[in-house]
Amino acid sequence: MYTQVARSKRQSIVDTLAGRIRAGEYEPGAKLEGEHRLAEEFGVSRSTIRQALSELQHQRLIATETGRGSFVIFDGHQLDQDRGWTQSMAAAGSDVSAEILAIEAVERSEVPLLPADVALSRAVAVRRVRSLRIADGQEVPVSFECATVPAVGMLADLPTAGLVEGSLASSLQAAGFVPVQGIQRADVRLLDEREARILRRDAGEAFLRTARTSFDADGRFVEHVVSLLDPRHFTLALSFGGER
């Protein structure tokens, strides 16, 4: 019951702010009120406001920009990791599909490259392959990833209930987990036999490997994603300095 009420409040805020934006109450490029001010206006927590703002970003009604950080580029287009890469890649004009290989409960020791300081006891792993449809209609795998989330609340039921709207990003949002900060590392990985079979490549082929660990505004662990990315399509960029 509490979850339904929280979602209802969040959706009401999203609808109200979206209406203001579409009605022109905010000038193009104008900033919304701060989280504290919005929380006071709507009588909710700042966490609920963050979730509402995240949804507005997903709807492309607002955008945020940070002073520094790393981001992945697919065929020249920056990917919005908050939206989910499949949606972001499709929005960039690429014909992509995502296949879920497994959603299962795992132990902490089974999570690859998880930072030692992340507090995690029970977890759920979601393994996916993304494929690109090429000119002759064939689908070529271009990425393989393992995303791990804490097995708490509705997230613990993902192995049996499945993903919300088929999306892990939507599942995290529905569970009240909104990533706002984190770390990302990258290196080169030579595919082992299992990875090569999944990606339909030769063992030993070099792929870009990224490990992204996300937390919410209170420092709570949200998600850890290890991705193997075809370097013919993906690059990793780094921005630094002040806001543009």
Rank of each mutant, 00 (worst) to 15 (best):
S54D: 11
S54V: 06
E55F: 03
E55Y: 02
L56F: 03
L56T: 03
L56Q: 02
L56I: 05
L56W: 00
Q57H: 13
H58C: 06
H58P: 03
H58G: 08
Q59P: 01
Q59C: 00
Q59F: 02
R60P: 00
R60L: 07
L61I: 10
I62C: 04
I62H: 02
I62L: 14
A63Y: 11
T64E: 14
T64K: 10
T64P: 02
T64Q: 09
T64C: 05
T64V: 12
T64M: 09
E65A: 12
G67S: 14
G67N: 12
G67C: 10
R68D: 11
R68H: 14
R68C: 11
G69R: 01
G69M: 06
G69H: 04
S70D: 14
F71R: 10
F71M: 11
F71D: 03
F74Q: 05
F74S: 05
F74N: 03
D75F: 00
D75R: 12
D75Q: 13
G76V: 08
G76K: 05
G76A: 01
H77V: 13
Q78A: 15
Q78F: 03
Q78N: 07
L79K: 02
D80K: 02
W85M: 11
W85R: 04
W85C: 04
T86S: 15
T86I: 15
Q87I: 04
Q87W: 10
S88L: 00
S88M: 03
S88R: 01
M89A: 14
A90K: 12
A91G: 09
A91F: 04
A92H: 05
G93E: 04
G93I: 08
G93F: 10
G93K: 03
D95F: 13
D95A: 15
D95W: 15
D95P: 06
V96N: 07
V96Y: 11
S97Q: 12
A98H: 05
A98P: 01
E99C: 07
E99D: 15
E99Q: 12
E99A: 11
E99G: 10
I100K: 00
I100L: 05
I100T: 11
L101W: 06
L101T: 08
L101G: 07
L101H: 06
A102K: 11
A102G: 08
A102T: 11
I103Y: 03
E104S: 12
A105I: 09
A105R: 14
A105H: 12
A105Q: 09
V106K: 01
V106T: 04
E107F: 12
R108K: 14
R108Q: 10
S109L: 09
E110P: 09
E110W: 10
E110Y: 10
